[in-house]
């Protein structure tokens, strides 16, 4: 296994690896090795998260995204392309380029 590395993404957020040999981590490692080398095979995909462009490796699941963004999953709900994505599906649904993701929580209101 390659050493887990942190990958600096375009928006400046540093992903911290959990040191687990998961597919997601491998992609990130691959991404680190390849960024700037291949333009024909873009490694990262672009999605929108809460209205902002966000890049992530292919095969990223919604659960990976929440983890990377350090979202408290207990207090959040996720919509994908304006459809609610039930909690049970966060681990299985993988992001596709162009996906519009909304991550919401509860706030004070009347």
């Amino acid at each position: 296994m390659p050493e887990p590395v942190g990958v600096l993404l375009s928006e400046g957020r540093r992903y911290s690896d959990r040191g687990q040999p998961d597919l997601h981590g491998l992609y990130r490692t691959a991404a680190a090795a390849t960024v700037g080398i291949s333009v024909e095979h873009p490694i990262m995909i672009q999605v929108r998260v809460n209205g902002k462009v966000h890049e992530c490796p292919p095969e990223t699941t919604v659960a990976d995204l929440l983890n990377d963004l350090q979202i408290n999953v207990r207090y959040c709900a996720v919509e994908r392309n304006q459809e609610l994505l039930p909690r049970e599906e966060h681990r299985t649904v993988r992001l596709v380029s162009g996906d519009e993701i909304e991550i919401v929580t509860l706030v004070g209101g009347g």
Binding site: V49, N50, G51, K52, L69, Q70, I71, N72, Y75, C76, A77, E102, I103, V104, T105, L106, V107, G108, G109, G110
Partner: peptide
């Protein structure tokens, strides 16, 4: 009653309103 809003991805103060509402005492009305 509480509102539903986007997570603020840039601010990770970690304080969520739900930590200040006793969920065993109050029924939440979203």
């Amino acid at each position: 009653t509480v509102a539903v809003r986007r997570e603020r991805l840039t601010d990770s103060s970690g304080r969520n309103i739900l930590d200040f509402i006793d969920l065993s005492r109050f029924t939440i009305l979203p």
